[in-house]
Design a protein around this nucleic acid. Structure first.
Lengths: 271, 271
DNA sequence: CCAAGTCGTTCGCGAGGTGAGAACAGAGCG
DNA sequence: CGCTCTGTTCTCACCTCGCGAACGACTTGG
């Protein structure tokens, strides 16, 4: 959970920013040479060079001939962060079950910096989409047009939701995207009433999804679970209901897992 | 000091190093506050603070009350790096099959900076070890005492192997660890002859493993596959042979996958 | 076969960013 | 109600960082 944005005046280190500019450029270019990076980033070759040398020494970049690439150092940190997340630790197993039962895509998402970040995704048997997408985690996206995102928004403090909208707006992705603030708040109210969120072709045409929030014992939102599938399957009332049932069930089970783990770790306090 | 200056080692950026010091400290401490970090790193509070502010702006750190933690930004970069790796892209499926068939732990590893890095691991039905370890990727470790590591070493240029040993030595983990350079080279020769490597309680007492290299069309080593299990199962000659069979088979299939993908991407060149 | 391109790497200089340390604002506690 | 923890802001001085030019090693083409 992020607090408010850093004060505008807070000092930032330009050298560190440059280093991450290099990192991101290496990602976008799938590896690159010194000259290419320098041109793209508008930096001098020597500056880029010393950044690459430093990153390499820190083991976040590897050099292969004349090209520099990101190293697996990021994977290790990434796996560490993921494993630390309660939602992943206690929801992974359940999500796999959910994908199995419904046969559709199942997602586990959380919020960071006002955006939706996927923690895990599992492809069910019937799931649509190319095989390539299966293992790929897409980058953070806005919260207001996904089932996972709206399940989260519905349980964030209202004032934080306002701040997020102020920051990112309500970008339109399809003709069904909710782009009006009041309409969104109405929808979020409905999510709270029903206990689940929906995404009715609001992000991708032809795709429907159902999501449910996962909260810890204190009521704080940890993230959400969703199942998504093609409209022609999902529109079917009975099918839709069974998906809702499965999703809310899964979210419920994960909540229990989380809370049991919490109290469990509190138990062995002997003193 | 009137001699000419030593050929000035490549310049490294101390500010960037400091930033990654902060990142690593956040990992080790599972999140921390400004004061704690400053004390641990021997930096001033203000310096740590500006690093944290910068990292937060770059979305690699999140703040929760008075504690700063690593964000999922690392997961995204990490997944990107992993998905770019040929061995993972073309070996993931096969590794899952391998774990299924043998029922043991199966690993996919590669080399970076002279160390062994696990790309993926799958737990078979009979596999030993606590459930917790299942999803956790351990950190890079030396190459000389694992089956995956020795499969890789056996196919690196001999001179590189020497450089790696010079750099890291041959640390002993158990009484069976090979700590003599010549003995290791003998073992690597055997690996090349037989086409697979073994780890006979050299890393962990009671654990045996069998590994096989995966190389691309040019003969360059991409990494390796392994299966590991408890000695009492693995010692059984027939069982051992079948594991060897499965592992070498899997490595072979992955090599074919890799090479087919290579030529496939070369095909659509129309001009 | 040499000249004119690459490329990554090194060097030296000057601007300005970085880091230390002290002071500040708040929260929590006795 | 002060004492003592936080995190945050401020200022100043040193030295790091980034630039631009030059270097050596390779390729390419005339």
């Amino acid at each position: 959970m992020t607090d408010r944005d850093p004060p505008a005046e807070a000092r930032t280190l330009t050298t560190v920013q440059h280093a991450f500019d290099v990192v991101r450029a290496l990602e976008e270019l799938d590896g690159a040479g010194v000259t290419e990076l320098a041109e793209r980033l508008g930096m001098s070759k020597s500056a880029v060079y010393s950044h690459l040398t430093t990153l390499r020494e820190e083991r976040f970049v590897v050099k292969d001939g004349h090209t520099y690439e990101l190293s697996l150092g990021f994977l290790l940190l990434g796996e560490y962060v993921r494993n630390r997340h309660q939602l992943y630790r206690h929801g992974k197993r359940e999500l796999e079950g959910l994908a199995e039962e419904t046969g559709e895509y199942a997602h586990l998402a959380t919020e960071q910096h006002g955006l939706s970040v996927n923690l895990y995704k599992v492809r069910g048997e019937k799931a649509v989409g190319s095989d390539y997408q299966t293992s790929k985690l897409q980058r953070p996206d806005f919260l207001h047009f996904s089932a996972t995102g709206k399940a989260i928004l519905a349980h964030l403090p209202e004032e934080r939701v306002h701040r997020i909208i102020d920051r990112y707006g309500l970008e339109r992705k399809t003709e069904h995207t909710i782009t009006d603030r009041d309409a969104l708040f109405d929808d979020l109210e409905r999510v709270r009433e029903r206990g689940y969120s929906t995404n009715d072709e609001e992000e991708v045409k032809g795709l429907q999804a159902v999501g449910a929030p996962v909260r810890d014992a204190t009521g704080r939102i940890l993230g959400s679970v969703s199942v998504s599938g093609p409209v022609n399957r999902m529109r079917e009332p009975e099918y839709h209901d069974s998906v809702v049932e499965h999703v809310t069930n899964a979210a419920n089970v994960i909540e229990v897992n989380v809370n049991m783990a919490d109290t469990a770790t509190e138990l062995p306090t002997f003193d």
